[in-house]
């Protein structure tokens, strides 16, 4: 698990640090840097395979601390220009020692598969190519393309996982009798639903909420993901379903995959603990992105006794600087 990280000069982040939990959310206004923080984590965690970060110039530096069962390792990746060429440099330890420590921590080197998803209903609806049996089952794109193939792969496993997923799915959507994954003319696999009255619904007839729910259910079974980054898991979901999706994400995190998300939904936040939320703001272009643990926001001790966590955010958020949350008025200032 990534316990903490520091990001320097990466996109709109000048210098920011945060501690993470197994399930963690970044909240904050638009354009504050939430997605950039996720991309920084994606880049750092997949430092070998993902190449350079999307940065026009200057050096990017990301420090990450990983810890598990009392073992810990820190590493720093730096992107800089050398002889006019971009280089990504791992600068913490000799590479061999670093890789062996990562192996002992169970992360391998690099960290293992890092997934960043921002589901898009149109992509989830697309028929997909069948997965090779030698490949790990995963979505083809961060938008969710490949869902039918992932479901097909899960259904083909020796255990009854596919049946259990369908059972949970039917419990949430009682009009559904089952999932169907028919082949298409161009050798792809499509997703269809069969209703209890025998009708077959194509993906174009399925609601966004249903597709998102199914995708998150499938996500928990995508293999070997050590770090799952999720953008706006609430998209397209009915408020009552949001809690269920967060529950699925928590189950994923309980099973050993760290889940870090960016969200605009107080309903998502309501399902989390104070230590699981970090507020992202960008006071000015010069200062860049600032990360504030929810527990360190203004008068948190008092406010959290009155408001649920998501309600607290909404009650004091202004969608801009979030001054009522992060202004200098400390608990001591407000005390009498």
């Amino acid at each position: 698990m990534i316990e903490s990280f520091t990001v320097s000069n990466f996109g709109c982040v000048r210098n920011a640090s945060a501690k993470l939990t197994p399930l963690h959310a970044f909240i904050g206004p638009n354009d504050s840097g939430k997605s950039t923080v996720l991309r920084a984590l994606q880049w750092a965690a997949g430092w070998r395979s993902r190449g350079l970060p999307p940065q026009a110039d200057g050096a990017s530096k990301i420090e990450v601390a990983l810890a598990r069962d009392g073992l810990s390792v820190r590493f720093r990746t730096t992107r800089s220009q050398l002889n006019g060429t971009d280089r990504t440099i791992l600068s913490s330890k000799p590479l061999g020692e670093f890789e062996s420590q990562m192996e002992r921590l169970g992360f391998g080197a690099p960290l293992g598969i890092v997934e960043l998803v921002r589901f898009d209903a149109d992509r989830l609806r697309e028929p997909s190519l069948l997965l090779s049996r030698t490949k790990l089952s995963t979505f083809v794109s961060s938008r969710g393309a490949g869902l039918p193939a992932v479901l097909m792969d899960i259904r083909g496993r020796p255990d009854d996982l596919g049946a259990r997923i369908e059972q949970r799915f039917r419990a949430r959507f009682p009009y559904v009798k089952g999932l169907s994954l028919p082949p298409t003319d161009d050798n792809r696999v499509a997703l269809e639903l069969v209703t209890i009255d025998g009708k077959t619904l194509s993906t174009s007839q399925l609601s966004e909420g249903l597709l998102y729910y199914l995708a998150f259910e499938a996500l928990r079974h995508v293999e070997d993901v050590k770090l799952l980054l999720v953008e706006e898991p609430e998209n397209g979901l009915h408020p009552a379903r949001i809690a269920e999706v967060v529950k699925v994400l928590r189950e994923i995190s309980d099973s050993g995959t760290q889940v870090v998300m960016a969200t605009h939904s107080p309903l998502v936040i309501n399902e989390l603990g104070a230590d699981e939320v970090t507020l992202v703001t960008r006071p000015s272009v010069e200062e860049g992105t600032r990360l504030t643990p929810m527990r360190a926001t203004r008068n948190f001790e008092q406010r959290s006794k009155v408001y649920a966590l998501g309600e607290l955010w909404l009650a004091y958020a202004d969608g801009d600087t979030e001054a009522q949350l992060v202004s200098n008025g400390s608990n001591e200032d407000a005390a009498q």
């Binding site: 008068n299 009650a315 009498q336």
Partner: peptide
Amino acid sequence: YRVGMGTRGEGKTVLKLALRAFE
């Protein structure tokens, strides 16, 4: 954001008043 709390919301409002005075 106070939706569906019914009578419990009255108690929340009292606490919010006290918090407002505190802040």
